[in-house]
Simulated scan of single mutants.
Amino acid sequence: MAEPVSDQPLVVGIGGTIGGISSTERALRIALDAAGREGFRTRMFGGADMARLPLYDPKATTRTPDETEFVDTIRQASAVIIASPGYHGSISGVVKNALDLLEETARDPHRPYLADMPVGLIATAYGWQATGSTIAALRSIVHALRGWPTPFAAAVNTQLTKFDEDGGASDAAVIEQLSLVGKQVARFVPVAIQHG
C-alpha cells in the first residue's frame, strides 16, 4: 500500500479492548480500510493505545504524551469512526474514557469536540441485544459531542461472525456493512466541510 500524502484528509478510528487484538479492532480496521480506498489517510487508536490513556481527570493541569497525541490527532481529523464492544448493554469503559478526553477540545475556536464531523459507529457483542443498545449509546454520545452520526451503523454479533488475522470475516455481509461505515464517513466529509 502506498504511503498516503499529507494533504489527504484524515479519518481516525477509535476502538478495541484491552488485552490483545479484538473483534472490535478487526471490525474497525475493515471500516478504516474502506475509508482509505476512498482516498483518506487513516489512524487507528486501538485497545493498546487506549490502555495507555489514564482515567480522564478534568482538573488535571497537564496531560501525558499519549493523551496529547490522541487529542491532537482528533483535532486534525476530518471524520471519526468509533467501534465499541457491548459491555453490559453499553459501550466499554476504555472507549468512553478516550471520548471523555475530547473535553480538552471544548474551547477550541476552530472546532470544539467533534462539531460538524461525520462519525461512523460500530458495535460488536456476543449476541444481538447489546449491539443495539451500544449503538444507541454511541449515537447519544456523538450527538453530545456535536458530531454527525452517519445514517448507517454496523452491529456485529460475534456469536455468529468470526474475524481472522488477515483482515477478513466469516460473513461477507458483515464485511460489506463495515465497509459501508467507512465509505459513508468518507463521502460525508465534503458535505461537512461545505457546511462547517
Score class of each variant (00 low, 15 high):
residue 32 L to F: 00
residue 185 V to S: 08
residue 124 T to D: 02
residue 13 G to C: 03
residue 55 L to P: 13
residue 152 F to V: 14
residue 20 G to A: 00
residue 83 A to V: 12
residue 40 F to Q: 11
residue 64 T to R: 10
residue 94 V to K: 03
residue 6 S to C: 09
residue 74 I to V: 12
residue 47 G to Q: 02
residue 77 A to D: 05
residue 125 A to Q: 08
residue 18 I to Q: 03
residue 99 L to R: 00
residue 133 S to C: 08
residue 56 Y to Q: 09
residue 134 T to I: 08
residue 11 V to C: 05
residue 145 L to A: 11
residue 188 F to C: 08
residue 157 N to G: 10
residue 112 P to D: 10
residue 113 Y to S: 07
residue 109 P to N: 06
residue 27 A to N: 02
residue 107 R to L: 08
residue 132 G to V: 11
residue 115 A to L: 14
residue 95 V to E: 03
residue 76 Q to V: 15
residue 77 A to V: 05
residue 159 Q to D: 07
residue 115 A to H: 13
residue 7 D to N: 06
residue 107 R to G: 11
residue 134 T to A: 03
residue 121 L to E: 01
residue 177 Q to D: 13
residue 169 A to L: 10
residue 117 M to D: 13
residue 54 P to I: 05
residue 71 V to F: 03
residue 125 A to W: 02
residue 25 E to W: 01
residue 160 L to E: 01
residue 124 T to S: 07
residue 72 D to L: 08
residue 44 M to Q: 11
residue 95 V to C: 00
residue 165 E to Y: 02
residue 47 G to M: 04
residue 172 A to I: 13
residue 27 A to L: 02
residue 27 A to E: 01
residue 181 V to A: 04
residue 96 K to A: 12
residue 189 V to T: 12
residue 75 R to T: 13
residue 96 K to R: 09
residue 185 V to C: 10
residue 43 R to P: 14
residue 114 L to H: 02
residue 23 S to L: 00
residue 38 E to A: 10
residue 132 G to T: 13
residue 191 V to G: 04
residue 97 N to E: 06
residue 128 W to P: 15
residue 27 A to Y: 01
residue 43 R to V: 12
residue 129 Q to E: 09
residue 182 G to Q: 08
residue 97 N to A: 09
residue 121 L to S: 05
residue 9 P to E: 01
residue 55 L to T: 11
residue 159 Q to K: 09
residue 17 T to L: 13
residue 27 A to M: 02
residue 131 T to I: 12
residue 38 E to L: 03
residue 36 G to R: 12
